[in-house]
């Protein structure tokens, strides 16, 4: 069955905060080996969907299967096979970057010390640098190393490149692409930046009113304007992204 082979399969997902529904009957499948961009307005529920997929948020209704498991039940085991990088990683200030990675290595069964060092070298991240002294870009690099060093089968990225300069964005995106190619993993990227999406993704899903309004190949959807959804406009909301796209 197709849904079983795909790393993410969501059906009828409903999540509400108080009386406000955020995800309302969402159906979505992430195809194996694909890099899919999840786009939509602010507060559309993109990060909420990622939290559900990670198992840190229990949905009100619906079925969710990530790598064949239910995140609400097997969240801890699942997170050991999933890489997750958020827009901001919060690490205690007394730590050095290497301390955080060392701490993570004790929690991930598949953590590869060699991969960690390779990624640090690739991204030019100094593991001895105190976290409090890390720039925003270096924090993003630390987050990406933490997400990739255990060689995940699924990568969930929640605006990991936002607010970074072009060079850093390109470097991070290249790292993700390399991982995508080498490990044959699947990527779900939440972003407002069309250039980031174009660099990394081959598919796009548009989240609107708590559901996936449109989904398909990046190139075909980018030119499409149908059903009240302007993908180009949705992708170009972030000024920085617009600038980069130009």
């Amino acid at each position: 069955m197709k849904s079983n082979s795909n790393p993410v399969a969501v059906k009828g997902l409903c999540v509400a905060f108080g009386k406000r529904p955020v995800l309302d009957g969402l159906d979505f499948e992430l195809q194996r080996g694909s890099a899919t961009a999840l786009v939509g307005d602010n507060s559309a529920g993109k990060s909420t969907l990622l939290r559900v997929l990670l198992g840190t948020l229990v949905p009100d209704r619906g079925t969710v299967a990530v790598l064949g498991a239910d995140p609400a039940r097997d969240g801890a085991r699942l997170r050991a096979q999933v890489g997750f990088a958020a827009d901001r990683i919060e690490v205690p200030n007394w730590m050095r970057a290497g301390d955080w990675l060392k701490f993570l290595s004790r929690l991930y069964p598949n953590w590869s010390r060699a991969e960690e060092q390779r990624l640090c070298a690739l991204l030019e991240l100094d593991a001895k640098e105190p976290v409090r002294a890390l720039s925003k870009g270096n924090r993003a690099k630390l987050g990406l190393v933490a997400a990739l060093a255990h060689r995940p089968r699924l990568l969930l990225l929640d605006e990991p490149f936002s607010g970074l300069d072009v060079g850093t964005r390109m470097k991070l995106a290249a790292t993700v692409i390399e991982h995508l190619r080498d490990e044959n993993c699947s990527v779900l990227l939440v972003s407002h930046s069309i250039s980031d999406i174009e660099r990394v993704c081959d598919r796009v899903a548009v989240l609107s009113a708590g559901r996936i309004a449109r989904e398909g190949e990046l190139e075909s959807l980018a030119r499409e304007e149908r059903g009240g959804i302007n993908l180009e406009a949705a992708l170009r909301r972030e000024p920085a992204a617009m600038e980069l796209a130009i």
Partner: peptide
Amino acid sequence: RTRSALPV
């Protein structure tokens, strides 16, 4: 929030 994404 960062810690909740750990594999524990």
